[in-house]
């Protein structure tokens, strides 16, 4: 899922400093699961904004709403009936949700209330970690199911750099060296021979380097 985390309150306060009447809009998708932008976080952010503004004798009216998803137009439609009554929206969906809302409602500013960090997993409750960079050219079959693009700080394709020490990455001793993981799993599976051949130069045109990406499925289009 897409993992995000709340922006510092001061940043959000600065965005809405000129507004008296706003919507705080959550999303029941990924950001609910990673506790960054669901119904609960809508409540907490709204309460915090309210407190801060009350303290400054500058109260703000907040309409709390949480949409099924902000990355689909049919759910974004759900705010159409009341959005015109407000001066701005703080969306705490992922960056895609914020943008899609901004695309649909152009009359008022749509502000991001969270930072969108990565595509990842829940390693344990309260701990999320990155697993995919969406490079558009999956090579996991070569690398024992561990992604070198994501898990190596240098996205090296042909084995660990000279900074891999006792299984840890040179960039952060808390981070496991992705290539050590690849090595370990291939060793366990008796497939170390996979590491003998050179993974060729990558084609990054499928990644962000090729410009904004789009997938069209004619069989599904209406």
């Amino acid at each position: 899922m897409v993992i995000g985390e709340g922006k510092p309150l001061q940043d959000v306060l600065a965005m809405v400093s000129q507004n008296k009447k706003i919507i705080v809009a959550g999303c029941r998708g990924c950001v609910t699961v990673c506790c960054a932008g669901g119904e609960k976080e809508v409540g907490v952010l709204s309460a915090a904004l309210n407190l801060a503004r009350q303290k400054d004798d500058n109260p703000i009216e907040i309409h709390e709403v949480t949409l099924e998803r902000q990355c689909d137009t049919e759910y974004l439609e759900q705010v159409r009936s009341f959005i015109d009554e407000y001066e701005a929206v703080v969306s705490i969906a992922c960056g895609a949700g914020v943008q899609f809302m901004a695309e649909m409602y152009r009359k008022i500013p749509i502000y991001p209330g969270i930072n969108t960090n990565f595509i990842g997993v829940t390693e344990q409750q309260g701990v999320w970690a990155e697993r995919c960079q969406a490079c558009g050219n999956c090579k996991l079959h070569f690398t024992g199911g561990i992604c070198p693009v994501t898990r190596c700080a240098k996205r090296l394709m042909n084995g660990p750099c000279g900074g891999s020490t006792q299984g840890k990455c040179e960039v952060d001793p808390e981070t496991t060296c992705g290539w050590q993981l690849i090595y370990d799993v291939l060793k366990e599976q008796g497939r170390l021979d996979k590491l003998e051949h050179i993974i060729p130069v990558s084609d990054w045109s499928t990644s962000r380097d090729g410009g904004p990406r789009r997938i069209v499925r004619e069989d599904l289009k209406l």
């Binding site: 510092p8 309150l9 001061q10 907490v44 915090a48 407190l51 801060a52 303290k55 400054d56």
Partner: peptide
Amino acid sequence: RILDETGI
């Protein structure tokens, strides 16, 4: 933390 951030 939130109370600190809000200035309360």
